[in-house]
Design a protein around this nucleic acid. Structure first.
Lengths: 351, 351
DNA sequence: TTGAAAGCGGTACCAG
DNA sequence: CTGGTACCGCTTTCAA
C-alpha cells in the first residue's frame, strides 16, 4: 500500500505499526525497533534517521500494550482513591500524577466510593494491568473482613514484581507514606488551649477509621496535658465527609451548644460542613463558636472565617508515594511527612 | 507446583498465565480462554468449573495488555484535564470515572497544567495506549498554532477507531459536550439587574480563552438588554485561576472600587480568589461589594457569603462525554447541558 | 551493523 | 465441545 493511498483512505485506517515503519524505511523491524529505542548505538546513523523520518511521516506511535507484553512491564502507575471530587484526594492525586509523569509513567485512577469491598475489587482488577506501582489512598476501615483479602491481593501483586504503596495506612505490611495524625492533633489541642479555649467538642468518624481514631486520641492527649477532656456527650460521630460534619453539627446545635467554645472536626471537609450547619443555625463561626479541622485542604483558606487546621503536605504525600514505589527499595519503608498547626480566624484567641 | 509451595516461594514469582490455568485444569488454553470469557456456552460445564477453580486457585488475572493486543482493543478511557486539583476539573473527572467504571472501563488521567503544548504531547502519547476514548477537558486557547496539530492528532486517533470527545469546546471538529456559556452568563446578568444591580465590573481571562469570551459577551448582552454596560476600565483580565481572580481584584481595589456594586468573575475559582482579595482589603463581600461567578463548583456554597453563580452539572458533563464516546454514534454530535442561575448571599437584593 | 525468528500472554479460527 | 495453531505488535536473542 503506497503512502498516498494510506493518506487518502482516511477512515477505518489502521494505525501504523512498526512493520509499516520498517518497510517505509527499507530496514527490518528489528532495526526499526532498535532505532526507535535508545539502542541507536548499534544502528548506522543513516538508518536511524531514515527510521525516524518514516515514523514521523506515518505518525507512528508504538502500541504500548504490545511493548508491555514484549518487555514484560508497563509504564503506568495506578492510583486508588476514595473520591476524586474531594479536595483531600484530588490534592494527593495531583501529586501522584505529577510525580508519575516526571518518571515517564502515565497514571490511572480508580475510585472506591469509600467502599472497602469496591477497593478490593479494584485492586484485583488492577493487577491485570500490571502497573509498575499501585498507590492506595483510601482510608483504612478496620473490622471488615476485607483487610486480609486486600493484603493477600497486594502481596500477590508485589511478588509478581509490582510495588504497592499505601498513603496514610501505616499498619499494613507494605510501604507507606504516613501523616503524624496523633502528633498533629495533639499539637493542635495544645495550641488551642494556649489560645484560651477550654470547652471542646469533637466531630469524628468513629474509631474503626484509623485516621479518625488517631486524630481523636491525639487531640485528647493534647488536652489532657492541661487537665482538660471532652465530655462524652460532646463527642459526635459521623461520616468522614462534608455531609457527615454537617449532620453532626446539626445534632450539636439541636442539643444546644451550651458552653462549648470550639469544635474540632477530625478533617477539614467535616469542619467545613459543620461551619455550614452552624451558620444555618444563626451561629457565626469564629465568633459564636470556633472551629478547627485537619488537613489544610485548598478551600480551608477560602471559607470565612478561614479555617484553623493542621497542615498536611498533600501533594507531597502523593509524590512521595510514587518516589518510594519507583525507588527500587525492597524494604517496606514507612516514611512520615511533617504536619504543622495553622491557626486562622475560625479560632481567634479568646479574651 | 503445589499450592503450598507457591504460597511459600513468595518473592519473584511470576503471575499465573492462562497456560498455567489450562494446565492446572487439564484442558487446552483455547478451552481455558473460552471458559473464562462469556463463551462458556460452548464449553462443557464440568470443564468450565475446573477452569474457574484453577483460576481462583492460582489467583489468576488475565494480562490486560495481552488481551488488548490479541483482541485489538483495550478497556480504558483516557481523560485529559488542565489540573485535577481544581474543583471544576475534579468534578468532571468524578463524572468521567464513574461512567467509565460503569461501562467496565478503567480511566486514565493526564494533566496538562494548562499548557496547550503539553496537551498536544499528552494526546499524542495517549494514542499509544489505544484507549477506547480520549476525553479532553482543558480550556481551548485560540491563537496558538497548536490547535491544528491537536486536530490532526485526534483525527489520526479517530481514524484508527478511537473516539475523541471534547468538553466545553464546541468549535473543534469532534464530538463535544458543551455548556451554554453565553446564555448562562446573559441570564445571570439579567437576574442581577432584576436584583437591583446597576454598576458592574468583570474579571475575565481574555478573549483567547473561548469559555471566558463567551461568558463575557453573554454577560454584556444581558446587561445591554437594560441599557447597561461595563466601562472598559472595569474589565479586568487575569489568569483563569483563583490566583488570577485574586490578582485582578487587588488591582480593582488599588484603583478604587468607586461606585462599583458587583463584580462578575467568569468562573467560580476566580470569584473566590476575588472574594479573598476584597476581604483582605477590608471589604466585606456581599455587603460592601457583591460577587458572582460561574460553574457552581462544590466550594461555592461553603465560602461566606455563599457565591452567586451559574450552575453547571459538572459531573454530568464528564459522564455524558463518556456516554457519547461509547455510544458508537459516528456523528460528531455536540450536546449541550443546561445551566441555571443560582442567586446566593454574595449578591443580596439591593434596596 | 543487520535480519530472521523466537517469544510475551492472550484470542479466535479451523479441524476434528 | 475441544485442541492445535496462526496471529496481534513489539523486543531481543542469535547468527550472519
Amino acid at each position: 500500500m503506497s503512502r498516498v493511498e494510506r493518506a487518502t483512505a482516511d477512515t477505518g485506517r489502521q494505525p501504523a505499526t512498526l512493520h509499516d515503519v520498517a518497510r517505509a524505511a527499507g530496514v527490518s523491524v528489528a532495526t526499526a525497533s532498535r532505532a526507535l529505542n535508545g539502542s541507536s548505538r548499534n544502528v548506522r546513523a543513516e538508518n536511524v534517521s531514515r527510521v525516524l523520518a518514516a515514523a514521523a511521516e506515518l505518525n507512528y506511535e508504538p502500541h504500548l500494550s504490545a511493548q508491555a507484553i514484549a518487555r514484560g512491564s508497563t509504564r503506568t502507575a495506578a492510583l486508588v482513591v476514595a473520591d476524586v471530587d474531594d479536595p483531600y484526594f484530588s490534592a494527593i492525586a495531583a501529586g501522584v500524577i505529577a510525580a508519575a509523569e516526571e518518571a515517564g509513567l502515565i497514571a490511572t485512577m480508580a475510585v472506591t466510593a469509600r467502599s472497602p469491598q469496591r477497593e478490593l475489587e479494584i485492586v484485583k482488577a488492577l493487577r491485570g494491568h500490571r502497573p509498575r506501582a499501585i498507590i492506595v489512598a483510601g482510608s483504612r476501615v478496620d473490622g471488615t473482613g476485607i483487610r486480609e483479602d486486600l493484603i493477600e491481593e497486594l502481596d500477590a501483586y508485589q511478588s509478581a514484581g509490582g510495588r504497592a504503596v499505601l498513603i496514610s495506612q501505616p499498619d499494613l505490611p507494605f510501604a507507606a507514606v504516613c501523616v503524624d495524625n496523633f502528633g498533629g492533633a495533639r499539637q493542635l489541642a495544645v495550641e488551642l488551649v494556649d489560645a484560651g479555649y477550654r470547652r471542646f467538642a469533637m466531630i469524628h468518624a468513629g474509631d474503626r477509621i484509623q485516621t479518625s481514631r488517631d486524630r481523636r486520641t491525639g487531640f485528647a492527649t493534647g488536652l489532657r496535658r492541661s487537665g482538660l477532656a471532652i465530655p462524652d456527650g460532646l463527642l459526635l460521630e459521623a461520616e468522614f465527609t462534608r455531609a457527615g460534619g454537617y449532620a453532626a453539627a446539626r445534632r450539636l446545635v439541636a442539643a444546644g451548644i451550651g458552653h462549648t467554645e470550639i469544635v474540632f472536626a477530625v478533617n477539614d471537609v467535616m469542619a467545613i460542613g459543620a461551619m455550614a450547619a452552624f451558620r444555618e443555625a444563626g451561629l457565626v463561626p469564629g465568633r459564636d463558636i470556633a472551629v478547627a479541622g485537619f488537613d489544610d485542604i485548598a478551600p480551608a483558606v477560602d471559607v470565612d472565617p478561614a479555617l484553623t487546621t493542621v497542615a498536611v503536605p498533600l501533594q507531597q504525600l502523593g509524590a512521595d508515594a510514587v518516589r518510594i514505589a519507583l525507588s527500587g527499595d525492597e524494604q517496606a519503608v514507612a516514611i512520615s511527612v511533617p504536619t504543622a498547626v495553622v491557626l486562622r480566624e475560625s479560632s481567634p484567641r479568646r479574651r
